Computed example of a mutant assay.
Amino acid sequence: MEPDKSIALRPRFYKELVQPIEEILSRCEKLKKEVQPNYSIKTSGNHIWLYIGEQNKKFYSPHLHLELEHRENNHTHVRGLFGPNQTLWTLFMFLHFIIAGIFLIFSMIAYSNWSLKLPYKNDLLIMSLMVVVWGLLYLIGRSNRHHSVPQMKELEELMNKILT
């Protein structure tokens, strides 16, 4: 998987395994103790979360969420999702909603001023600024993902130890 080449900020992948879910979860429990200081592994039901350990964690450090689905003949379908730190992701989403809200408010004000034949250039300027800020947020997200690619590959290796 090449996460740096996709446009999505949260890369996804899918795998089919010829193993039952119970076997994968038991391997996960064994590995949990072996990788303790460098990685953190959490499980809940058929979900596994892989995190970078506290000593190597950066603000852009990713986590990997694996969802295990039972298929017939003891096969397992694995859905994987790389994501940024949850706090950082929440901040980015909050900023996106604020920017979208400001854009919508000033678009309504600009329309009202245009229909009333009042000046509306400042409103259009603020709307343009919000588009630029949104683009900057996207570029910052891409930059954070680019910086986290080596850690994503580490988590992918850890995942392969669990799944194989």
Rank of each mutant, 00 (worst) to 15 (best):
Y111K: 01
T90P: 03
K32P: 06
G101K: 06
T43C: 02
R79E: 07
Y39C: 07
I21T: 08
P37K: 04
T43S: 05
I24F: 05
V131M: 12
G45R: 01
H63K: 15
L64F: 08
F59L: 14
L68E: 04
N73G: 07
A110E: 02
L104S: 05
E67H: 14
F13E: 15
H75Q: 15
L116W: 09
S112A: 13
Q36C: 10
F106N: 02
M130E: 09
L125I: 06
S61E: 06
D123C: 08
N73H: 10
K57G: 00
K121A: 14
P11S: 06
Y120Q: 03
E23P: 00
F59D: 13
V132Y: 10
L50P: 05
I102S: 01
L124S: 03
G101L: 08
T90N: 13
G101N: 06
R27Q: 04
G53W: 02
Q19C: 09
F92C: 10
L50E: 03
R12C: 06
N113K: 08
E22R: 11
N56D: 12
F59P: 08
Q36A: 10
Q86R: 11
W49P: 00
L125H: 10
N56T: 02
W89E: 13
L17P: 03
R27S: 08
M130D: 03
Q86N: 12
H96S: 15
L81V: 08
I102T: 07
D123V: 02
E54F: 12
F13R: 11
H77M: 12
S61T: 05
I98D: 05
S44D: 11
F97Y: 13
Q86I: 14
S40C: 11
I52S: 01
D123R: 07
Q19N: 11
F103M: 02
E22H: 08
T43G: 04
E34F: 02
R12L: 09
M130K: 04
F92S: 14
F94N: 12
E67R: 15
W114V: 00
N38C: 09
H65V: 05
D123W: 07
H47W: 08
K117P: 00
L17V: 03
L129R: 04
R79N: 10
K32H: 04
T76H: 06
H63G: 05
S128H: 09
L116M: 10
S44L: 14
F92D: 14
E72P: 07
K42F: 12
S128T: 10
G45H: 04
I41R: 03
K15R: 15
W49M: 13
S107W: 11
L124G: 03
F13S: 14
K30G: 00
Y60C: 01
Y111I: 06
M108D: 04
Y39E: 12
Q36Y: 12
L104R: 00
H75R: 13
I102H: 02
E54A: 11
E34S: 11
L104W: 02
E54P: 00
V78K: 08
S112Q: 12
P11Q: 06
Y120A: 05
L129P: 01
S44H: 13
E22F: 00
L31I: 05
M93H: 09
G53F: 04
L116P: 00
S107D: 08
F13V: 10
V131S: 12
K33T: 10
G45F: 04
